[in-house]
Simulated assay, not measured.
Amino acid sequence: MKWIPGLLLALGLSFTAQAEKFTIAAASDLRYALDEILEGYKAEHPDQRVEVIYGSSGKMTTQIINGAPYDVFFSADIAFPEKLKEEGLTATEPEVYAIGRIVLWSKTQDASRLTLADLTRDDIKRIAIAQPAHAPYGARAQEAMTATGVWDQVQDKLVFGENIAHTAQMVASEAADVGIIALSLARFPDLASHGHYLIDDRLHQPLTQGYVVTKRAEHNEAARGFARYMATEPAHVIMERYGFLLPASQP
């Protein structure tokens, strides 16, 4: 039966194509940096198909627990990959890939001249932060405002983004007067034309960002290969340009 070798070849090609495809779930603070990193990666691996889903780390953790088809998970807080490990849903150990920072940013004011204490001013009527319940950047914003004594005073001004990219969009569209967003987003060229104020990282717990390859991708060499690529010099150069501290560069 001459069709059998052809069928086996077709099946083999199908399995190969499947192995060369993977899906990344990534925290929204990575949106611009990771897009750039993937440009370089895809140029080196044109045979691989990569899909990226951006969102809040907490929500994506819940999605993975509920069976979402994500192969690599880049979280804004390593606690979420550690939770997945406890659930038996990881193929690798949780690893730190970066430390994030938070900033004050505004489209309508010179945020470089603002501090957290200024958030109580009467002319600042809406303050955007990511939802602290499931977005690490929102939780750190709450911690910083609490540490400086303004959290209770600004409750009626707060508006919440689903994730940190949504929060930045709210401020950029002037739905909020000022926001506490990721430094990595404030450094994106479209936002970098407006100044920002770097919030003292002693005011909040560190944004220790971690990743894992999920159990689903245990035998997906393409997914594992991209996870390793994030530790290369080209990826590190881009991450540092967007304001991330790398594990080797931590003080």
Rank of each mutant, 00 (worst) to 15 (best):
A117Y: 09
T146I: 09
G40D: 02
A10K: 03
E36V: 05
V237R: 14
T214E: 03
A43R: 12
L84P: 04
N220A: 11
G100W: 01
H166I: 12
H196S: 12
L89W: 04
A68M: 06
L84F: 05
F15V: 14
L198T: 15
F74K: 04
W3S: 12
V72E: 01
L203P: 04
A17Q: 13
P81W: 09
D156Q: 14
A128H: 09
I37S: 01
Q63M: 14
A176S: 07
D118R: 06
G138C: 10
Q109Y: 15
I127W: 07
A182T: 04
A141N: 05
S14D: 02
L30K: 15
R228L: 11
W3T: 12
E82V: 03
L114V: 02
A182G: 12
G55P: 10
M170P: 01
L198N: 07
I78A: 07
K215A: 14
V159D: 03
I78D: 04
S173W: 10
P46N: 05
I4N: 10
K2M: 11
N220L: 08
E82R: 14
Y54F: 15
A68W: 10
A117V: 04
T61R: 05
A192H: 13
T62M: 09
S57M: 04
G195W: 13
K125F: 03
I164A: 05
I37K: 00
R31T: 13
H204G: 14
T208D: 14
A76S: 15
A19Y: 02
